Simulated scan of single mutants.
Amino acid sequence: MRVAIYGRVSTGHQVEHQTIEQQIGRLTAQVAAHTAEGWTLDPAHVFRDDGYSGATLARPGLDRLRDAIKGREVDRVLVTAPDRLARNYVHQMVLLDC
């Protein structure tokens, strides 16, 4: 199973309490815990958005992630929490429908 991971922080407070590196580290460890089940992570499928609000869907890392999904390059996407994809529940549903 080809996995993609996505991390995002938008505010200084978030940077202090949950950095992108911490998010990526947790998600990478999750993939590693499932390698026996066939999970793989290509470094090209690590997506991140530093300093972008979750209130908008126009973000460079998220755009590249959506392109990878549309191109059927990945089978599963991991995030540390749904609000990393989008703060708004409706936006989360739009993204899940991709």
Rank of each mutant, 00 (worst) to 15 (best):
residue 3 V to L: 07
residue 18 Q to H: 12
residue 78 L to M: 05
residue 96 L to R: 15
residue 90 V to Y: 11
residue 66 R to P: 00
residue 20 I to E: 02
residue 16 E to R: 15
residue 13 H to I: 11
residue 25 G to T: 11
residue 6 Y to H: 03
residue 93 M to V: 15
residue 23 Q to L: 04
residue 42 D to N: 15
residue 53 S to L: 07
residue 72 R to L: 08
residue 36 A to K: 13
residue 85 L to Y: 02
residue 74 V to A: 02
residue 38 G to L: 10
residue 85 L to T: 00
residue 35 T to Y: 05
residue 5 I to M: 04
residue 33 A to P: 04
residue 32 A to T: 11
residue 30 Q to F: 10
residue 86 A to S: 13
residue 32 A to P: 04
residue 79 V to F: 05
residue 35 T to Q: 15
residue 3 V to K: 00
residue 46 V to A: 03
residue 74 V to Q: 03
residue 57 L to C: 08
residue 66 R to N: 04
residue 97 D to T: 14
residue 98 C to G: 11
residue 55 A to Q: 11
residue 97 D to Y: 07
residue 83 D to R: 10
residue 9 V to T: 14
residue 33 A to M: 09
residue 77 V to D: 02
residue 77 V to W: 06
residue 54 G to V: 05
residue 54 G to H: 05
residue 25 G to L: 05
residue 88 N to F: 07
residue 26 R to E: 13
residue 27 L to G: 00
residue 14 Q to S: 07
residue 46 V to G: 03
residue 40 T to E: 11
residue 25 G to V: 04
residue 69 I to T: 06
residue 75 D to E: 13
residue 92 Q to Y: 01
residue 63 D to N: 14
residue 93 M to D: 05
residue 42 D to W: 06
residue 46 V to Q: 00
residue 10 S to T: 10
residue 26 R to H: 12
residue 89 Y to P: 07
residue 66 R to E: 10
residue 53 S to E: 09
residue 73 E to R: 13
residue 1 M to G: 11
residue 20 I to K: 01
residue 44 A to N: 12
residue 43 P to W: 07
residue 45 H to A: 10
residue 86 A to Q: 10
residue 93 M to Y: 10
residue 44 A to W: 09
residue 82 P to G: 01
residue 13 H to R: 15
residue 29 A to M: 09
residue 22 Q to H: 09
residue 69 I to F: 04
residue 5 I to C: 01
